[in-house]
Computed example of a mutant assay.
Amino acid sequence: IESLLTKCDFITLHMPLNDSTKGFINEEKIAMMKKGVKILNFARGGLVNNDALRRAIDEEVVNRYVTDFPSEDLLGIENIIPIPHLGASTPEAEENCAIMAVNQITDFLDTGNIRNSVNYPDCSMDMNGDTRISIGNKNVPNMVGQISHVLAENSLNIANMINRNQGDYAYNLIDIDGPVSENVTTEIEKIDGVIFTRIIEGK
């Protein structure tokens, strides 16, 4: 890296922001750069030490700094070009996001699978039974045991199941051999901590 910094006319940043990369472009690294270098940062704002950058701009070591992570202390400074962070707002990206959202909502309605929820964990599996029960509950011990007990009491065989949790909530998908009556889900909903149930017929 140090060798490259001494030779480059343009430097672009392509890395995540973490403890080891925070302030990656600092006074020490700027001192290695060619005078008149141009820095493009479309990765993360915290990769650049803004104090060191402003001094380098004033001393004309850095000729241009272009970033889509504008911060207040970089606004209005000549040769610093802040642009909006709108990479996800192109027509193509918005169309892809809309398609993804529709597909994931349809999958949830058809199978109970959850992907990219804010409050619930990702939880999905192929349907492997005649009927599926989806159950949302508080993330507390012995929920799966109590739910399984209700199913056993009603002579229902579990073909497949998955349980995932996130924070205060958990979610279950249980595939059953044979039909499931609403009486079963009513019993499950009586369990303390169960938030909702839904029966999904297999196709």
Score class of each variant (00 low, 15 high):
residue 83 I to D: 02
residue 108 F to D: 01
residue 83 I to W: 02
residue 104 Q to R: 12
residue 103 N to D: 15
residue 89 S to C: 13
residue 118 V to N: 14
residue 122 D to R: 10
residue 97 C to S: 15
residue 119 N to H: 13
residue 104 Q to A: 09
residue 134 S to M: 11
residue 100 M to I: 00
residue 112 G to M: 02
residue 94 E to C: 08
residue 109 L to G: 05
residue 88 A to C: 00
residue 132 R to M: 00
residue 115 R to C: 08
residue 98 A to R: 15
residue 96 N to L: 12
residue 102 V to C: 14
residue 117 S to Q: 00
residue 95 E to A: 15
residue 96 N to K: 12
residue 129 G to W: 05
residue 100 M to P: 02
residue 131 T to D: 02
residue 109 L to Q: 12
residue 83 I to P: 03
residue 132 R to H: 02
residue 113 N to F: 03
residue 128 N to S: 12
residue 130 D to E: 10
residue 113 N to P: 07
residue 111 T to L: 09
residue 125 M to C: 14
residue 80 I to K: 01
residue 105 I to N: 03
residue 101 A to G: 14
residue 127 M to S: 10
residue 128 N to A: 13
residue 90 T to H: 04
residue 110 D to P: 01
residue 93 A to F: 00
residue 96 N to S: 09
residue 87 G to A: 07
residue 101 A to V: 08
residue 108 F to H: 12
residue 82 P to I: 04
residue 103 N to H: 14
residue 90 T to K: 05
residue 86 L to S: 08
residue 131 T to M: 01
residue 102 V to D: 05
residue 100 M to S: 10
residue 88 A to L: 01
residue 112 G to W: 00
residue 117 S to Y: 00
residue 93 A to Y: 03
residue 131 T to F: 04
residue 103 N to Y: 15
residue 116 N to Q: 14
residue 129 G to S: 06
residue 113 N to R: 08
residue 119 N to V: 11
residue 132 R to Q: 02
residue 126 D to G: 07
residue 116 N to P: 03
residue 127 M to A: 04
residue 87 G to L: 04
residue 115 R to Q: 13
residue 123 C to R: 04
residue 125 M to T: 10
residue 122 D to L: 09
residue 113 N to K: 05
residue 105 I to H: 06
residue 98 A to F: 13
residue 92 E to Y: 05
residue 107 D to H: 11
residue 89 S to G: 07
residue 126 D to K: 10
residue 116 N to K: 15
residue 103 N to G: 11
residue 101 A to D: 11
residue 111 T to S: 12
residue 82 P to Q: 05
residue 114 I to E: 05
residue 84 P to M: 00
residue 108 F to P: 03
residue 122 D to K: 09
residue 121 P to C: 10
residue 84 P to D: 05
residue 86 L to P: 03
residue 119 N to W: 08
residue 113 N to H: 07
residue 85 H to G: 05
residue 114 I to G: 01
residue 109 L to C: 13
residue 90 T to Y: 09
residue 130 D to N: 14
residue 93 A to W: 01
residue 83 I to L: 03
residue 134 S to V: 14
residue 107 D to Y: 09
residue 133 I to T: 07
residue 106 T to E: 08
residue 127 M to W: 02
residue 108 F to K: 04
residue 114 I to P: 03
residue 107 D to Q: 13
residue 127 M to Y: 04
residue 96 N to I: 08
residue 121 P to V: 07
residue 115 R to V: 10
residue 109 L to E: 14
residue 125 M to F: 11
residue 95 E to P: 04
residue 121 P to A: 10
residue 83 I to A: 04
residue 123 C to A: 06
residue 103 N to E: 15
residue 100 M to E: 05
